[in-house]
């Protein structure tokens, strides 16, 4: 289904994840093959429970596979120890989650600083926030920000380290469409300006129109791969 290209940032072969054993075993992934080229923006589309979050978690070094291989450049993720995975996340991966996962006791600026403080070559904290359109309200706590603003802080936090890989798991899932579009625009802009390899998980087919390539998942496998003839800018989307 997918071919391994030389400039691929991330690839997986026969990736399998089984939760539980025996009769209670749940097959979340049933042998996924995948390759992402450097600088690509890919949407992973599928209904909830199809295994897309599991796949993203394994690719992001948050979870381990039961079988199969996953590679980040020439590092085999599936062979990494706990500490190596931590290192991998710290140095190479930016995450954006549905529920933002901001520290309630830190301001917007400080939430971003949380990452810039431990990253190797981060951008300036303010710059990251400006990239997502949050030049102001830097000193507000999450509870004082709207959902969209919180998600943009989360994006700023994810990209401030200049990651090679940006993984977004339903970043608009908790937002209304208008606010969601603002968030998508931010992701689009980051991708354009930084050229970060980006994977965006969604169950919303409309969002898929903003990328070149769409991978459709169902029941633990990638069932379809599409290429959009034309990438629609996020601001033209509507749902």
């Amino acid at each position: 289904m997918t071919t391994t290209s030389d400039n691929s940032t991330l690839r997986a072969q026969g990736l399998t994840k089984v939760y539980g054993t025996g009769d209670a075993a749940v097959h979340a992934l049933r042998g996924v093959d995948l390759a992402l080229s450097s600088g690509e923006l890919v949407v992973l589309l599928g209904p909830s429970g199809c295994g897309k979050s599991t796949l993203l978690n394994i690719l992001g070094g948050l979870d381990t596979a039961t079988a199969g291989e996953a590679w980040f450049r020439d590092h085999e993720l599936t062979a990494m120890e706990h500490a190596q995975l931590t290192r991998y996340r710290r140095d190479h991966v930016g995450f954006v989650f549905q529920f933002y996962n901001l520290m309630p006791s830190l301001t917007a600026l400080e939430n971003v600083a949380l990452v810039t403080e431990i990253a190797k070559a981060p951008m300036a904290t303010e710059e990251a926030l400006r990239l997502v359109g949050l030049g102001e309200r830097l000193h507000h706590f999450p509870a004082q920000l709207s959902g969209g603003e919180q998600q943009r802080v989360a994006i700023a936090r994810a990209i401030a380290k200049r990651p090679e890989l940006l993984l977004c798991d339903e970043p608009t899932g908790a937002l209304d469409s208008k606010t969601g579009l603002l968030v998508l625009e931010a992701i689009e802009r980051i991708h354009a300006e930084l050229g970060t390899t980006t994977v965006l998980i969604t169950h919303n087919a409309i969002i898929a129109e903003m990328t070149d390539r769409v991978l459709v998942m169902g029941d633990g496998v990638i069932t379809e791969e599409r290429r959009n003839a034309r990438r629609r800018p996020a601001r033209e989307l509507y749902w």
Partner: peptide, 16 residues
């Protein structure tokens, strides 16, 4: 736990 796990996701080590 929620905060700590988030930090771990962000690449903070166990010691941190």
């Amino acid at each position: 736990g929620w905060e700590l796990a988030t930090l771990e996701v962000l690449g903070y080590s166990h010691a941190e």
